[in-house]
Structure formats: structure tokens, C-alpha cells
Amino acid sequence: MKLALQRCCTTPIFLKQYETSTDAILERLGVQLTDKALNCCGYPLKNYNYKAHVIASARNLSIAEERKVNIMTFCNCCYGTLKEVNQRLRADRTLSAEINGKLEKEALKYEGGVEIRHIMEVFYDDLGPERIRENIVKKFRGLKVAVHYGCHILRPRDLVQFKGPGTAAVFDDLVAMTGADLVPWHLQSECCGSAMWGIDDDLSAELTRKKIENARASGADYLCLACSYCHVQFDRVQKRLLDEGRITEPMPTILFTQLLGLSMGIDPNILGIWKNQIDISPILDCID
């Protein structure tokens, strides 16, 4: 299987471990990734200039179209943005004609033939749970994990149609396969607070703090997530809040690709276990 990876713009500086762990797992699972030509999905522009946000996504969609591959994202915001633009352009002929007029300069054309896959969907729907289970060589024991869904993987419901908590929860199933114990917590589908970081840091910090405390009160040792914005928030920003004394105890956060990678027996160095700001290395003791 071949996919175009929409690398999120936050990863090169802040989250190299998300890239290396994703690359390592997908290589093991036989998925080929291409990414060089893709640009920002347009997410940060949505409130400022909607059309600019559309053309950013449209360009990526048309490049994938030209190469006849689907796009995979490992960030909820990229996922939601690409999906929304794809839906909008499929429905709105006037807008897609206008955007195509501009993409023509690069000999690109949006035709609506590409699907957007969240990395969770690639694991669960495209590769299938069997394939993942076959590749798991080590299991976690006594590890309590709170699965953090976040926003754009679940909402707006009509658009994303992702199997979220309460129904056949894809993310929960995948985490359970690694042997980790799932901890139910009621704020798992709320915003991580990242959207306000840099705009109103107090609001952002408060949203993050509430989630961390809820997860801890529910008995979790780790948060597990699959979104670059959420991870930057729960790792880097949490570190800042700890340093400032706004949170007293750390809640370590592991990327799903790191968690799965460990249970697939991939070298923790490649998974960037020591690259997280809040130490997650004790997790290595919980593995068989």
C-alpha cells in the first residue's frame, strides 16, 4: 500500500519522534509513504481567510490525485481540514472551478478522487486488526492508559464519521491490542487546549489542566494520543505548566505510534522515547 503522508507543520521542530515512530511502524507494516511535495493543510488559516485554507488543502489533494494515492494524516487538525475541504470542493462546483483555475499554474487539478485517512483508520480499516495483532510481539502489563481522542477525529460527526467512543471505538481497540488497560474518563473527547495556546495562554492552560486532572482521577498512568497538536500541548505545554507550578504532578503522554512501536519490538531510540519533554521511559518497565 502506498500513501501520501500529510506531515503536520508542528512535527519537524517539536515532534520529530512522531515522524520517526510513524515511519518505522509503517515500514514494518509494508506501507510506503511519500510526502515531499505536500504543504500545510491550511488549518491555521481557516478563521482568517477561508479560501486560502481551501487552496492549501486542495493543492495537497490534487498532488495525491496526480500520484493516485490517498492521503494519510497523523494530526487531527490536518485530518479535519483536509476532509472538510474535500467534502466542500466535491459539493461546490463554483469553488472547485475557481481553485482549479489557480492550481492550473502548477499543472495540478482537483477532481475529488482522493480519500483522507487518519493513521488510526489506516491501522484499523486499511491494514486491519489482524495485521496489527500479528505484528505485536510484546505486551504491556499493568499499564493504565487514558485514550485521548481530541476534536477533529470525532467532530463534526457528519463529516468525519469516525468510530468514536461509545460505539466500535477504533482507538480503544488498537490500544487494547498492545495489552494496555483502558481507563474510562469523561473528558477524553474534549479539546486539548492547543487551539488557544499563544492566543490566551491562561484559557489554554486551564483546559489542559482539567483534562490531566480528570485522567489522573480516573486512575490513568499515561495519556495516549494520535494528534500532533494535542501531543505538543500535553507534552511541551504541560512541561511549562509543571515548571510554573500550575500543575503539580506530571501526566506522561505517549504517542500511539510510540506505544504500538514498543509492542512491535521496535528500538525505543527510533521511536524517540527520550525525545518527549515529560519522561516516558518508565513505560519500558511495563512491557514483557
Binding site: 508542528t10 517539536f14 488549518y43 491555521p44 488559516l45 478563521n47 482568517y48 487538525c77 492547543s194 487551539a195 495556546w197 499563544g198 492566543i199 495562554d201 489554554s204 497538536y229 505538543v232 511541551r236 505545554v237 511549562r240
Partner: peptide
């Protein structure tokens, strides 16, 4: 006005 968008996340992370 762009300060009110997620472009500010980077600025927030580098605020120290």
C-alpha cells in the same frame, strides 16, 4: 489579527 489564529502556537511555545 493573525495573533488570534493557531499560527500563534509557535509564539506561545517560544514565549520564554
Amino acid at each position: 489579527l493573525l495573533v488570534l489564529t493557531p499560527f500563534s502556537m509557535y509564539r506561545g511555545l517560544l514565549s520564554p
